[in-house]
């Protein structure tokens, strides 16, 4: 489904990704762990098409097609979703209106029929209930006056609404208490299917107790330096990243 091939990227002349290789097949959940500053968020932003990165080498294929020339909105329509490490606050935009615009924009790009107000609301209420998100959140301006946990739950709600084929979760667990963590994990697990894959970026092993990954990779200094199964996360929890940081 997604193939990252020898990806090199720079920001303002600074080399950040130095040859990332990663293949994620349909239905798989991969986790990327690594020290702060390793380039995890940079990788997730590049996958979702944020501007400001100079990709000097390599490619990212989504279902066999290069994504590098696609706009962020085109990538979303193709089925990509990024849950932001730091969700953005937008005063004056209401969650409900925003979600409706997003859902219908994607449907339009896919040449599907747009949802009318009623069917949209029905769908949204369904998801809200399933995820255990407070309905009151829907009336608020996007991420404004939300706690860290509420923002992350908003991201998961958005993911549930947009039903992506491939979702990247960038440290969705950081700053969450155990209940919020369970909501997030539950959101991911309920979407797990043979057609859908996930890349879960995390700093701690804790989340991976709830979202059991098929593969775990360590990203350090712009490269994947070790890969393994779910047990690798446990090892990292015990030994830390010192071994890799020195590299």
């Amino acid at each position: 489904m997604i193939e990252i091939k020898n990806l090199h990227a720079e920001v303002e002349g600074k080399k950040i990704l130095k040859g990332v290789n990663l293949t994620i097949n349909s239905g798989e959940v991969h986790a990327i762990m690594g020290p702060n500053g390793a380039g995890k968020s940079t990788l997730s932003y590049i996958i979702s098409g944020r501007e400001g990165y100079n990709i000097t080498k390599g490619d990212i294929l989504f279902d066999g097609i290069s994504m590098l020339d696609m706009l962020p909105e085109e990538r979303a329509a193709a089925g990509l979703f990024l849950a932001f490490q730091y969700p953005v606050e937008i005063a004056g935009v209401h969650m409900t209106n925003f979600l409706k615009a997003a859902v219908n924009s994607i449907r339009k790009m896919r040449k599907e029929e747009e949802l009318d107000a009623l069917s949209f609301l029905k769908l949204m209420k369904e998801k809200v209930k399933k995820l255990g998100v407070k309905e009151e959140m829907l009336k608020r301006p996007l991420n404004v006056d939300c706690s860290g946990g509420e923002k992350k739950r908003n991201e998961i709600l958005q993911m549930a609404m947009l039903e992506p084929k491939f979702a990247v979760l960038d440290e969705t667990d950081s700053g969450l208490d155990i209940d919020a963590l369970k909501i997030v994990a539950n959101g991911v697990n309920s979407l797990r299917s043979p057609e859908r894959s996930f890349l879960v970026i995390t700093h701690y092993q804790r989340l991976l107790d709830y979202i059991i990954p098929d593969y775990v990779h360590v990203l350090s200094n712009g490269k994947i330096v070790k890969s393994g199964d779910a047990n690798l996360a446990k090892e990292l929890e015990e030994n830390g990243y010192a071994e890799f940081e020195a590299a």
């Binding site: 962020p72 932001f84 925003f98 997003a102 924009s105 947009l162």
Partner: peptide
């Protein structure tokens, strides 16, 4: 720009 990218990453075209 951050807000713009956030909206676009959700499938909303740049103009919208």
């Amino acid at each position: 720009e951050e807000q713009l990218f956030y909206l676009r990453s959700r499938g909303i075209a740049q103009h919208d």
